[in-house]
């Protein structure tokens, strides 16, 4: 079975700050890491490979430096990584990203299962997983917290909901996005790190992928971000003074007037 994991390089959320004037995320001096949710997707794919055999390919779209996250994925235990990188791909929204990733998966051909993290820690849209399924006409389930069964034609998964979970069966090929309840991602091993250091990461550009130029990058992105900002915080405290009974009366007044 060939499993693909889609991974994204993001600014480390623990260091993230927003420029108040421009409303943009400050990327300078911030470490770039694998999107934390994608680590669960990688771990699950590696576990499936360990149980059932097959191969795991990690795919990312981004600038050439994003091959680092693919090397990290190889260090964890995936077999290979492919980076989709081209100036034309820049500025893609989730629609264009899903299309571009889908073209890469079509090119691979034999993919039975695609696993994504539930969302990226920078954009937080959670749209690329379902977008991939729509592009490829694969079945899909989001927010998977457990894979109960998997064989060559179908899988049964548990989908996390607000009140519990649903059990759903999917025909393969399929896309699932996973939540952090699904596993505990492993650390890389030294052997994996050494393999990753030597690994060649193929770079697929618009020509290799045979994409419609109108559907990639900024050209293929109908989403327009008008403004991003940090919402102002409204947390004004008020001290009530007086004897305990006076304070209680004041508090009751305030509550009634809400």
């Amino acid at each position: 079975m060939h499993i693909v994991v889609c991974v994204k390089q993001v600014p480390d959320p623990s260091q993230a700050r927003i420029d108040r004037d421009t409303g943009l995320v400050i990327r300078e001096g911030v470490d770039k890491i694998t999107n934390p949710f994608d680590l669960y997707a990688l771990e699950e794919a590696i576990r499936l490979k360990e149980s059932f055999g097959g191969q795991v390919t990690a795919i990312s779209m981004g600038p050439p430096a994003a091959k680092e996250v693919l090397k990290d994925a190889i260090a964890m235990g995936v077999d290979s990584g492919i980076l989709l990188s081209d100036r034309q791909f820049a500025g893609a929204d989730t629609l264009a990203t899903s299309y571009t990733l889908a073209q890469a998966i079509r090119k691979l051909g034999d993919v039975a299962l695609i696993i994504c993290g539930k969302q990226a820690a920078d954009g937080d849209t959670a749209q690329v997983g379902p977008g991939l399924a729509a592009n490829l006409d694969f079945s899909h389930v989001t927010q998977v917290r457990k894979i109960r069964q998997l064989n060559s034609t179908e899988t049964v998964v548990e989908r996390l909901t607000d009140t519990g979970y649903e059990v759903l069966g999917l025909r393969l090929p399929a896309v699932i996005t996973v939540v952090k309840e699904i596993n505990e991602p492993r650390l890389p091993g030294l052997r994996g790190m050494m393999r990753a250091k030597k690994a060649e990461i193929p770079l697929w550009d618009s020509q290799v992928l045979d994409v419609d130029p109108k559907r990639v990058g900024l050209n293929g992105s109908p989403t327009q971000v008008w403004r991003t900002f940090e919402p102002a915080r409204h947390q004004k405290g008020e001290m009530l003074v007086g004897s305990p009974s006076e304070q209680a009366a004041l508090l009751l007044d305030r509550l009634r007037s809400l």
Binding site: R186, L187, P188, G189, L190, R191, G192
Partner: peptide, 8 residues
């Protein structure tokens, strides 16, 4: 063990 540190 999984990180191969016993192998060094």
């Amino acid at each position: 063990g999984e990180s191969d540190l016993f192998a060094v």
